[in-house]
């Protein structure tokens, strides 16, 4: 029984940052990631009639974004395919025989694992942040992600420093609870 519905008017407030983080970890370019998110929303609108309500709205949008990322790489594939592979062993006669072993052991595998973990962490964190009440979410992201100083946030939101720290405390406590199971 389908229980989910689409609410395109709330997509940007609810999912833009989540999708953006998802995209940026895959394309490593903020401008391209932004375009992909925008295209995802448009594509979502276009295919809204095909939405059966079986998946959550965000899951459905992520599925579209995945396609967009693949399309992006297909488009630039011709350039990517020309990427050079530099072995650098051509004139190292002393190192004869060493190259095979060194090439088998992938020196980047560890950093690869790390980046996958960071990506999962980023999405988990983004998910938890999206569950915060809107004012707390705003204050937390301005302070923690954008790194704004206390005075500027207070001026922009018309609150005093005590209010800000109360909201920071509540949001951090909520995030600790939300992330607790997997990350603490």
């Amino acid at each position: 029984m389908p229980t989910n519905e689409l609410h395109p008017n709330t997509w940007i407030d609810k999912y833009a940052d989540y999708l953006f983080n998802y995209a940026i970890t895959r394309v490593s370019d903020a401008e391209i990631a932004k375009d992909l998110v925008q295209e995802t929303f448009f594509a979502g609108l276009k295919s809204a009639k095909n939405y059966k309500g079986e998946a959550a709205e965000r899951t459905w949008l992520i599925a579209i974004l995945k396609r967009k990322v693949i399309d992006h790489y297909r488009k630039i594939n011709s350039k990517k395919g020309k990427a050079e592979i530099r072995m650098g062993y051509a004139n190292m006669e002393d190192a004869e025989g060493d190259w095979l072993e060194e090439k088998v052991a992938d020196p980047f595998s560890q950093s690869g694992e790390q980046s996958i973990e960071n990506e999962e962490l980023g999405l988990a964190l983004q998910d938890c942040i999206s569950k915060l009440p809107s004012k707390q979410k705003l204050v937390f992201t301005m302070k923690t992600i954008q790194g704004m100083n206390t005075e500027d946030i207070c001026n922009e939101l018309g609150i005093n420093a005590s209010n800000l720290w109360v909201m920071i405390h509540r949001s951090r406590t909520a995030l600790m609870g939300c992330l607790n199971q997997n990350w603490f």
Partner: peptide, 20 residues
């Protein structure tokens, strides 16, 4: 810090909203 979260700028979101 580890997650290195990124956020869309307010202006970008407004532009997206208008386009949508």
């Amino acid at each position: 810090d580890q997650a290195n979260l990124q956020q869309l700028q307010k202006e970008d979101k407004e532009a997206m909203k208008a386009a949508l």
